[in-house]
C-alpha cells in the first residue's frame, strides 16, 4: 500500500512538473510567390491557418534584395491570427525577382503539442514595376530548424 501511494505521488509529481514546464513549440513557415517570367514589384497576400493551431508572432523579410525588408501587415487582421502581408518596390525591372522566390517568413508558435497548421494563402494583388497586375502563385512551406 505504501508502495502504491509512493508511485501515485511520483506520477502526480511528474505530471505537475510537466504541467508547469509545458510550453509551445516554435516554427518558421516560408512564404513564396511565383511570378513566372514577370518581374515582381508588388504583392499582397492573406494567410491563415485553417486548423487554427498556429499563432503568428513575427514576420521576417524575404530572400531577394528587393524584398529583404520585413513586409508590413494589417494590424486588425493579425488580431484574428490572419496575416495580410504587403510590400512594393519601385526598383527597375532588372532588379526585381522573377520566378519562385521567398518573400517572407512567418515565425509562429504552435501551443498544442503535435498539432500541425494547414495554411491557406489568398493572393489579393500582385503587380509589375509599371503597375500592371500579374497572375502569381503563392505557397507556404515549413522551414526545417537549423
Amino acid at each position: 500500500m505504501k508502495y502504491i501511494r509512493g508511485v501515485i505521488c511520483w506520477v502526480l509529481l511528474v505530471a505537475f512538473v510537466e504541467t508547469i514546464t509545458a510550453h509551445g513549440a516554435f516554427a518558421v513557415y516560408e512564404v513564396y510567390v511565383d511570378s513566372g517570367s514577370k518581374a515582381l514589384a508588388a504583392y499582397q497576400v492573406r494567410i491563415w491557418d485553417e486548423e487554427g493551431v498556429a499563432k503568428i508572432l513575427s514576420v521576417e523579410g524575404g530572400e531577394p534584395p528587393a524584398f529583404q525588408a520585413p513586409p508590413f501587415f494589417d494590424p486588425k487582421a493579425i488580431q484574428k491570427n490572419v496575416i495580410k502581408l504587403a510590400a512594393f518596390r519601385v526598383d527597375a525591372s532588372e532588379q526585381l525577382p522573377r520566378g519562385k522566390v521567398r518573400v517572407a517568413s512567418l515565425h509562429v508558435e504552435i501551443p498544442e503539442s503535435g498539432a500541425r497548421p494547414r495554411w491557406r494563402v489568398v493572393i489579393e494583388a500582385a503587380a509589375t514595376a509599371d503597375g500592371r497586375k500579374i497572375a502569381v502563385r503563392a505557397s507556404v512551406f515549413k522551414k526545417d530548424e537549423e
Partner: peptide, 21 residues
C-alpha cells in the same frame, strides 16, 4: 489561444497598402 475560423477571416476589410520603403 483564440482560434480563427475561415468565416471570420473572410470578413476582414480590404487592406490598402499605405506605406513603402
Amino acid at each position: 489561444r483564440t482560434g480563427v475560423s475561415f468565416a471570420e477571416a473572410m470578413t476582414d476589410e480590404l487592406w490598402v497598402i499605405s506605406r513603402a520603403g
